[in-house]
Each structure stands twice: as C-alpha cells, then as structure tokens.
Design a protein around this nucleic acid. Structure first.
Ligand SMILES: [Mn+2]
Ligand SMILES: [Mn+2]
Ligand SMILES: [Zn+2]
Ligand SMILES: [Zn+2]
Lengths: 149, 149
DNA sequence: TTGCAACTAAGAATCATTCTAAGTAAGGTC
DNA sequence: GACCTTACTTAGAATGATTCTTAGTTGCAA
C-alpha cells in the first residue's frame, strides 16, 4: 500500500492509506460516497473532496480504475487488469467477469482498428439479473440492500 | 413517428414529435442538453424538463435507448438494435459498431448465464482514438469540436 | 363538446462532482 | 533535527446533470 503510493510519486498520507486500504480487496465497485461513508469513523475529519481528489490521483496513477457502468455515480475498481462486468438491472450489483478462452482471443482480435478507431481497450458489459434477483419470489431492490434486508 | 408514439400509448404532442424527429437518424448519440439546444428555435417555449421527461418516456417504450458510455451526461441513441460502440478518449466521439462474424457468434454464446447472472444483453465498448484524433498532427479536442475548428 | 388523465412550463430541489481559498504536513535538504 | 517547498487537506461555494413540484394546458376518448 505504502510502497504503491511512493512508487508512483504520491505523498503518503493517512487519508490516502485509509482510502486505498478500504478499496483494495473490495470487489463491490464502491462509489466515492460509499467509501466516504465507510471511512467516516476512522477519519472523521476527512473531507469529501479528499475522497474525490485521492481517487482521481489513484486512478491517474493506475492504482485503481474508475468505471461508469450505468447512470449515476462513478464506481471505483481495485482490479486494474482487463476484465468485464456483469450489472444487475434490478439491484445494481456489479461483479467482475474474467474473459476467457474464445472470448479472450476475440478480445485480442478486436484490438484491430474498428472503423478507423485505433482501439486501446475493449470492455464488455453483461446486463441481466443477479442470482438474488433472478429468483422469482424475492427480487432484491436497492433499498433492501441498504437496510441489509 | 406519429404512429410510433400512438402505438405505445403515448399522447402525440408537438414537443414529442420534435424530439423524436430530431433524434431519429442522428448517429451522434446526443445528450439531452444537445437536443434541447437544437430544438430551441423550433419550439422556443419548450422546457428542459420536457426533454428529460420525453426521453425517459421514449426510452421506457423502447423507441430509443439511453447510454452511459463514459462519465458525464447520458447519451440517447435512436438505434435500439443490439450493437456496440467505439468511444474516442480524446474528443468524446461515439460511433456505432455492428458486431459481425465471430464476434456476433461469441455474443450469442455469452447469453449463457455468467456466474449466476441471467444475461439479457451484452454490450461492448471499444476505447481508443478516432480517425481525427489518431492523426499525430492535429488531435481534436472537445473545445475545438464545439467551435467547429 | 366535455372531462379528465396525461402532458408541459417554470423553477426549486437534489445529487454528483469540481473548484477555490486558506491552512497543514510530507519528505527532501542542510 | 529544523527548515522549506510544495503537495495535500479542509470547508464550503460553485457547477452541471437530472429529478421533483406545482399549477396551468391539451390530446383525445366518450
Ligand atoms: Mn471490476
Ligand atoms: Mn449506438
Ligand atoms: Zn440483483
Ligand atoms: Zn477523437
């Protein structure tokens, strides 16, 4: 953590360590607001702007990635390796999907120019319903997720 | 146009006809603000909220699609057939990319459940630089696009 | 025609994000 | 270890996108 910051020329501060620790290993693709909420007790004086500033700095240095998978706030991803995402239409859940086999080969193929574009990356978004929400009886809403229901 | 609105139970109003006419056949994936700007002379009294209301109604009825391809405002797409997009890192240009051959087959394959998700659709986003911006001499910025430079 | 639900206009409100100004502290230098 | 410089943090204002509210208007079915 500490080394990762130094390695890319960012000063090591308690705020940055806390944000990076919170984000690393979190597979839920949290928003800035979610991270801010989780860090309030650890660093009660931290400003919201610092969360945005820090996430922007980390993103620019490639320590995390910003993803806009749907309308609403940007989500942050500690997984900077190329991968795809599945997004639940019903509850908003986002999970990583590793491209594999034929798909991976196809992704490589797709780095060929497309209609004049010089392609730097290809990402795929699977939309549908997660396991919870696909179950016919109890579709989980965003509101329910928040109350832990 | 007129029929399309009636066919899905929406009342026909001058505002809706104007918005739909403006959007249909426009391949640039305009934002609500862009559409509002273009319609000001035709319907000077139209409210911004009406543009949003109408686009939401059209989207719900499947007459257009809302796409969040990057951070910033949502873009609207008259092309509701499944297709992919290429987005220019430099100037923001968005173009349609039709999936073809192997890629199309792979897309069909991908409608299999992914890690428990029941997949409704798969979309792909190609990121890179458009023809203008890939040219080494005169990369086109958003600002330049607006002034027509 | 008439009635009413659906629609529109105007502006306030909300949400996400960025900016500004002033103070603070990390980390290199002596 | 004290000092300096500059990057960083804070608080709050500002901006931009979108949604909400309320009151007035209109498409269109009966
Ligand atoms: Mn991810
Ligand atoms: Mn399109
Ligand atoms: Zn779900
Ligand atoms: Zn471009």
């Amino acid at each position: 953590m500490l080394d990762a910051l130094r390695a890319c020329g960012l000063k090591v501060t308690p705020q940055r360590l806390a944000i990076l620790n919170q984000l690393v290993g979190d597979p839920t693709h949290p928003t800035a607001t979610e991270l801010f909420g989780r860090l309030r007790e650890e660093l009660p004086s931290m400003s919201f702007a610092t969360v945005y500033n820090t996430l922007a700095a980390l993103t620019k240095q490639g320590l995390c990635a910003a993803r806009q998978l749907e309308s609403g706030p940007v989500r942050f991803d500690p997984n900077v390796a190329p991968h795809d995402h599945a997004v639940c239409d019903s509850c908003g859940l986002v999970i990583d999907v590793m491209t594999e086999g034929l798909a991976a080969a196809s992704a490589a193929t797709n780095l060929k120019p497309v209609q004049g574009f010089s392609v730097r990356s290809v990402e795929r978004i699977y939309r549908g319903r997660c396991v919870q929400c696909a179950a016919p009886n109890e579709p989980q809403t965003d509101a329910e997720k928040e109350t832990g229901d």
